[in-house]
Write a protein that binds this DNA or RNA. Structure first.
Lengths: 105, 105
DNA sequence: GCCACATACAACCGTACGGTTGTATCTATG
DNA sequence: CATAGATACAACCGTACGGTTGTATGTGGC
C-alpha cells in the first residue's frame, strides 16, 4: 500500500484517476515513459486497491478507489492515536503521583 | 516520505518510537537484522522528518515526529479533497443541466 | 473476416534499495 | 587516559524495482 504510493508517477496517476476518466493509453500520454511502464504502474496501484479499471468500449478507464485511499489514511491515523495514547499514559502516570525509578538513564 | 513509510521495518520503528524512548541499539534488538541496518532505517526516517534523535548520555533516543506523520496524512487528505471536488463538479454539471456530448460510448 | 486500436504480458537491463561486515568517532566511567 | 559502550559511516553484495522492447490478446469499425 505505502509501497504503491512511494512512487511519484504512481501518486500522480492516482491524482489523475480521481477526476479524469482516462484509459491507460491516455494516462500514459501525460508521461515521458512508455505505455507499458504506465500500465505496470496502474497494475501495481490496482493490486494495492488504490485504483480500479472498468472496461468501457475498447478502453479500460482507470478510477481512483476512495476506500483504498481511506485505508492508507486510517493507518496514519492509528499512529496519531498511538501518540495520543502515549501522552495519555504519561499524564496518568503523573496524575498517579508515580515517580520514575530511573529518572532518565 | 511515502518512500520512507514503504518499508515494514521502518513503519514498525516509527510505531516503537512513538511510545518508547529507546536508543538505536535497543531498537535494533527487536529485529533480526544487524545494528547497522536498523541505523540506516532510522537515518532514512530522520531524513524524511518522521523521526528525530536526541542525545541522552551516550545513547541517542529515537522519537517519532508527530508533525511529520501529520504531513503524510495531510497529503492523503488532499486526495480526498480532490475526490470531493470532482463529485462537486459533477453535481454542478448535472445541476446546470449540461449533457455530455459523448454519453459514454 | 480483417484491420486498427487498446490493453496485457514476458523477457531483459541498469540502478537503487535493504542487507552485510568493518572501521572510525564520540561519550561516559574506572 | 584507557577502555567499553553506542552511534556513524563506507564499501560491498544480492535482489527487487522502474524502465525498455517485443509479442499476444481482445474489442470495435469497415
Amino acid at each position: 500500500m505505502f509501497r504503491a504510493l512511494a512512487d511519484t508517477t504512481r501518486r500522480d496517476i492516482v491524482r489523475r484517476a480521481i477526476d479524469a476518466e482516462e484509459g491507460v493509453a491516455e494516462l500514459a500520454s501525460h508521461y515521458s515513459m512508455s505505455f507499458a511502464a504506465v500500465q505496470k504502474h496502474v497494475a501495481i496501484l490496482e493490486r494495492a486497491g488504490l485504483v480500479s479499471k472498468e472496461r468501457i468500449g475498447r478502453r479500460k478507464v482507470v478510477r481512483a478507489n476512495l476506500e483504498g485511499l481511506r485505508v492508507a489514511r486510517r493507518l496514519l491515523d492509528r499512529y496519531e492515536e498511538l501518540w495520543r495514547g502515549r501522552v495519555d499514559r504519561m499524564t496518568a502516570l503523573v496524575a498517579a503521583g508515580t515517580e520514575m525509578e530511573e529518572p532518565e538513564r
